[in-house]
Design a protein around this nucleic acid. Sequence first.
DNA 1: GCGGACCACTGTTCTATGGC
DNA 2: GCCATAGAACAGTGGTCCGC
Length: 283
Amino acid sequence: MDIRDLQIFQTVSRHKSVTKAANELNYVQSNVTNRINRLEQELNAQLFHRSGKGMSLTSAGRNLIQYADPILEMVNEAKNAFLIPQGPLKLGSTESTAAVHLPSLLMKYHEAYPQVDVSLTTASSEELIKRVLHYELDGVFVVGPINHPELKAFTFMEEELVLISSPHHPPIHSARDLQHETLLVFDVGCSYRSRLEQWLSDEKAHSVKRMELSTLEGLFRCVESGFGVALVTRSVAQEYKRGEIKLHPLSTDYHQSTTVFIQRKDRYQSPALSRLVELMENE
DNA sequence: GCGGACCACTGTTCTATGGC
DNA sequence: GCCATAGAACAGTGGTCCGC
């Protein structure tokens, strides 16, 4: 006697029919008949009265169903324990995505799956990708596109990049307008910095100084005080500005930014991670 | 000792068919 | 229409052999 025997027995008992039980369980009718016969032989008891109209439990069958029901209930509980999202979920994100877009997403996720322990690490895209590849993080939000044979990615959102400056700064039409200006950037490995460097290189604007900062808060304070200009997404600019700042749209070749969610292809996708991906897809 | 390949045996499921 | 049975096909398991 195994779990499937009890499941078949219970289903036949419920439907009072071998054929209907077979349909529900996706077996052929003869298989269900054989299983019931074998169970009866093993228990040395007749479990069903047979008739041309169907099957009904004997007293031995009624006795067995008292054991089968709670056993199958416990089996289902055990299965559900592994299907319900729970345990740790280690995520990573760039500073700007974590600050602007993730709070509402993670709030919804926490309300839906309170048993999951979510941790969020912020770092540059380059650093986050390394940590996913080394199995240290389950999934990360980074600036795309990402084409790596060991990673799978899907687009989380598209955003517009803008330059920000103090309100008195003259309009910025090209990279050459930044000559002798100070660029406020995050450390090497930041995708926005790479995008900015590419733009300056393409337009041969070489006399531009850099100043590295580690937080968005510090970056905006410096911009507002007229210390320099910085490249951020439009949503971050609107979220973070406290005083007056000026937004300068970028040329169309550089203004688009795609945030992607990436994870290892070969990593086991836990229920906790699967539900997060589903939530993002339904957003 | 360990892991892979091969083979025989056993159990499970299916199709086809017959009886009620 | 329903259930039972026979025979065939397929999948899984255990034992043995061989190479590393």
